[in-house]
C-alpha cells in the first residue's frame, strides 16, 4: 500500500529525514515512535505531499506521490493532481484542526460534497453513519468549541474517513488530549484497525502500539534506528538509542 525508498527532506540546511525506507502492507498498521524532532511528523506530511520532498521516492497504492518521473527526474505534479491523490489518504492531526465555523456534521460532509461532488443527501447520510461509528451521532450539530478534545478528535477521524481513504495517517492523535480523554480516541482507532484499514500512526502510546500495530518503527535524528514486531521491540530493544528512549518514556508514565 505504502512504499518509501531513500526519502530525504531538508528545512534550509537542516536535514530532518536522512534516507527513509519503509513498506506498509495493505490492511496493516504501522506505529512510528521516537523523540520529538526525530522527523516522525515530517515523514507523515511527506506521505500526502503536504511537504515537498528533497530526495527519494514514495508510492501510495502503486502511484508515485506528488511527482511524475520523466527520464529519471522528478517533476512536481500540478495542484489538481496532488489534490486528487490526497483524497485517497486521510489525515488526523495532533491539534484536530476541525473547521471551527462548521458543525461536526458540516465538517464531515464538506469535502465529500465540495471535493468529491457527492449528492448532499447521500453525503449527509454517510457522515451521520460515521459520526455514529465514532460515538458522536447525537452531537452532530455541535460546533467544535462545544465539544471536548476527545470528541473533536473523533469528529476529525470521521471527517477523514468520509472521503473513503485507502490509507490513514495519524499525527500524534492523542498528544494534545487530557489523559482521561485518550482512551476514547484510541478505542476508535483500534476499531478502525480491526476493520482492516491501512494505518500509519505516529504516537507516544506504547500500549496502543503493542496491542494494535503489526509493525513498529523507532526513529531518531531523521533515520529509522530499529524496526520490527512491536511486542519484541518494546520488550527487548536491540539498539542503545531505542533502549534509552523507551526507558525515558516508561519512567515518565
Amino acid at each position: 500500500m505504502l512504499r518509501i525508498r531513500g526519502l530525504r527532506k531538508k528545512y534550509g540546511n537542516r536535514e530532518v529525514l536522512r534516507g527513509i525506507d519503509l513498506d506498509v502492507a495493505a490492511g496493516s498498521v504501522l506505529c512510528v515512535i521516537g523523540p520529538s524532532g526525530s522527523g516522525k511528523s515530517t515523514l507523515l506530511s511527506c506521505i500526502n505531499h503536504l511537504e515537498a520532498i528533497d530526495g527519494g521516492r514514495l508510492w501510495v497504492g502503486g502511484q508515485l506521490v506528488g511527482y511524475r518521473e520523466h527520464k529519471g527526474r522528478l517533476h512536481e505534479l500540478p495542484e489538481r493532481e496532488v489534490a486528487r491523490m490526497r483524497q485517497g489518504i486521510g489525515m488526523v492531526f495532533q491539534q484536530f484542526n476541525l473547521f471551527p465555523h462548521m458543525t461536526a456534521l458540516q465538517n464531515t460532509v464538506e469535502a465529500p460534497i465540495r471535493v468529491k461532488r457527492m449528492a448532499r443527501d447521500g453525503a449527509r447520510k454517510a457522515a451521520l453513519g460515521l459520526l455514529e461509528r465514532v460515538g458522536l451521532g447525537d452531537k452532530h450539530d455541535r460546533y467544535p468549541a462545544q465539544l471536548s478534545g476527545g470528541e473533536q478528535q473523533r469528529v476529525a477521524i470521521a471527517r477523514a474517513l468520509a472521503m473513503d481513504p485507502g490509507l490513514m495517517l495519524f499525527d500524534e492523535p492523542t498528544s494534545a488530549l487530557d489523559p482521561e480523554l485518550v482512551g476514547e480516541v484510541l478505542a476508535v482507532m483500534r476499531d478502525l484497525a480491526r476493520s482492516g484499514m491501512t494505518m500509519v500512526v505516529v504516537t507516544h502510546e506504547l500500549g496502543f502500539a503493542r496491542e494494535v500495530a503489526d509493525d513498529l518503527v523507532f526513529m531518531d535524528a531523521g533515520r529509522i534506528v530499529e524496526r520490527g514486531d512491536p511486542r519484541a521491540i518494546l520488550a527487548a530493544p536491540k539498539e542503545k538509542r531505542t533502549q534509552d528512549f523507551l526507558s525515558r518514556v516508561i519512567q515518565s508514565v
Binding site: 495542484e79 490526497r86 484542526n97 473547521f99 469535502a111
Partner: peptide
C-alpha cells in the same frame, strides 16, 4: 493547521 487539514482532504487552494 486549517489550510493543512483542508488540503489533506483534497481541497484546492
Amino acid at each position: 493547521g486549517q489550510s493543512r487539514a483542508a488540503a489533506a482532504l483534497g481541497m484546492r487552494r
